[in-house]
């Protein structure tokens, strides 16, 4: 047995292909990115080393609006945590308490999660279309013409419109994670609380939610990090427009690299996004685990 499981050649054959692929494609590029971010480089000529200049330029004497893209991603993060998660939590708590049609609702709410972001982006672009879109047509149809807007074409409304779609797509995901956690709370706890005369609301506030804290924390992290990294949906729906109103760091990174050929500067954005995500993950974990202790 020992000999069988210690077969060095077999171990090598089993592990090495995965290890090599993973190292070359996932790990090595990060170091490249860090290196690129310190170059002034257009991808064709040889880059010159500029140290941290690219990072400084992200915020000082910035000309391409990077700070505003960061602000946009923060707005998305705050809205996600403040609006999306409470709704998801409410739905999860209701569904976990054995309501009629529990399974069907759960399945329906989850459907948008599995659909490609490109499809969802295209679909909602058409819903928001100011001239022919579903939203304005319906508003006009029921006599609310005054509410019809330019939506994605308006600099003021676009970011909010994008956020609505993010909520629509991902609420089922957060709901399902929280639901699974609420379901895992033993029913005896509920029953004894009910016998003690607690009503459903008190049970949710005093028992379920405190017990679900760890998973809520996961959802907060997902929502925040997801907002910082959001790309697909916005890229498809607005491309960052109109007039940069919905531009987030990833989109600016993408255009900096592949449209403006500012390879070094774009890489600095990429590294900034990673560091930002790491810092916030750690910070949220710290902040929210303190809460759990209390």
């Amino acid at each position: 047995m020992q000999k069988l499981l210690g077969n060095k050649k077999a171990i090598f054959l089993f592990v090495f292909p995965a290890l090599l692929l993973f190292t070359v494609i996932v790990i090595v590029p990060i170091f490249f990115s860090v290196y690129y971010s310190m170059l002034d480089w257009d991808g064709i000529a040889k880059g010159t080393f500029v140290g941290f200049n690219n990072y400084i330029r992200l915020f000082q004497n910035n000309t391409d609006g990077f700070p505003r893209t960061v602000l946009n991603s923060f707005i998305l993060a705050i809205l996600s945590v403040g609006i999306q998660l409470p709704i998801a939590l409410t739905l999860a708590l209701i569904l976990a308490r054995e309501v009629r049609g529990e399974k069907i609702f759960r399945t329906i709410y989850f459907i948008p999660v599995i659909i490609s972001t490109v499809v969802i982006g295209q679909l909602w672009t058409r819903i928001y279309n100011p001239d022919y879109g579903l939203l304005n047509t319906v508003l006009r149809g029921i006599g609310l013409e005054s509410l019809a807007g330019r939506w994605l074409a308006s600099t003021e409304q676009a970011l909010g419109c994008v956020f609505v779609v993010i909520v629509w797509q991902y609420i089922g995901y957060h709901m399902l994670i929280m639901y699974a956690s609420a379901k895992s709370i033993s029913s005896e706890i509920y029953e004894s609380a009910l016998i003690d005369g607690a009503n459903e609301l008190t049970i949710a506030m005093r028992i379920s939610i405190p017990l679900m804290k760890p998973i809520i924390r996961v959802c907060v992290i997902f929502a925040v990090i997801g907002s910082f990294k959001s790309f697909d949906l916005i890229y498809v729906m607005t491309g960052g427009g109109p007039l940069h109103a919905t531009e987030v760091p990833t989109i600016l990174m993408y255009t900096s690299i592949f449209a403006k050929y500012r390879y070094g500067y774009g890489s600095a954005m990429a590294i900034f996004i990673i560091v930002e995500c790491l810092v916030f993950t750690v910070a949220i974990k710290k902040l929210m685990s303190k809460d759990v202790m209390e």
Binding site: I25, V26, V28, P29, I30, F32, S33, Y36, K229, F231, T250, M253, Y254, I257, Y263, G266, S267, A270, I271, I273, I274, C277
Partner: peptide, 8 residues
Amino acid sequence: PIHATLLP
């Protein structure tokens, strides 16, 4: 995150 590896 995949963004960090895109250009390399």
